[in-house]
């Protein structure tokens, strides 16, 4: 079916006019990705929290969450995806690195090697054991989401950060200017 023959998308999440550049225009994909988004995000948090003694962890969780967002980019286009989750992904990644790095510091204050783990004595019901490695994992999680989504957004949007002399400088259309 040609793009223009699609029914007017009035019941879909408000798509910008003129159409946001969805990579793959499909009603099924749009519907499924809308339903999948919360599920994938939930699964990613589950993966994050079970990570310290079962398969999973910040990296896998982060990739899952990023894939949820990238699914939105594919189905609805980058602008809509940015509107659904208005996050500056680069700053998210930097914050993740910062957050992950500082939780190794308490050990150094105590005169122990960097990243020596501290655990709460009792596991918290529903969440499991908590300690500084979990917090470090959260930092990894945020970093992976930020970096992966940022790569996808940059590849889709192709902002011209440094215009070539031959090119016409076009204003960058990202809200974080990167």
């Amino acid at each position: 079916m040609h793009r223009n023959e699609l029914p007017p998308p009035n019941r879909l999440p408000s798509r910008s006019t003129p159409r946001d550049s969805a990579l793959y225009d499909s009603l099924i994909l749009r519907t499924v990705s809308r339903l999948m988004m919360p599920l994938l995000l939930l699964l990613s948090i589950y993966m994050l929290l079970r990570g310290h003694n079962l398969p999973g962890g910040g990296f896998i969780g982060g990739l899952l969450a990023a894939s949820a967002i990238i699914l939105q980019i594919v189905a609805f286009g980058p602008k809509t995806a940015r509107r659904i989750l208005p996050v500056n992904y680069l700053l998210l990644a930097a914050f993740g690195v910062f957050f992950g790095a500082i939780w190794g510091l308490p050990a150094m204050v105590a005169g122990l090697p960097y990243m020596q783990a501290f655990w709460l004595p009792e596991p918290i019901p529903g969440v499991g054991k908590l300690g500084t490695p979990v917090l470090f994992d959260i930092g990894v999680y945020l970093t992976v989401i930020g970096v992966t989504t940022k790569i996808a957004l940059l590849l889709v949007e192709e902002p011209i950060l440094f215009p070539l002399p031959a090119m016409k400088p076009s204003p960058v259309e990202t809200e974080d200017g990167a």
Binding site: V97, F98, A101, G104, A107, M108, P113
Partner: peptide, 15 residues
């Protein structure tokens, strides 16, 4: 234990 300082400092500083 503080041998990590030359690594931690630019990491946190960079972030």
């Amino acid at each position: 234990f503080h041998l990590f300082i030359p690594i931690i400092t630019p990491m946190i500083g960079g972030a």
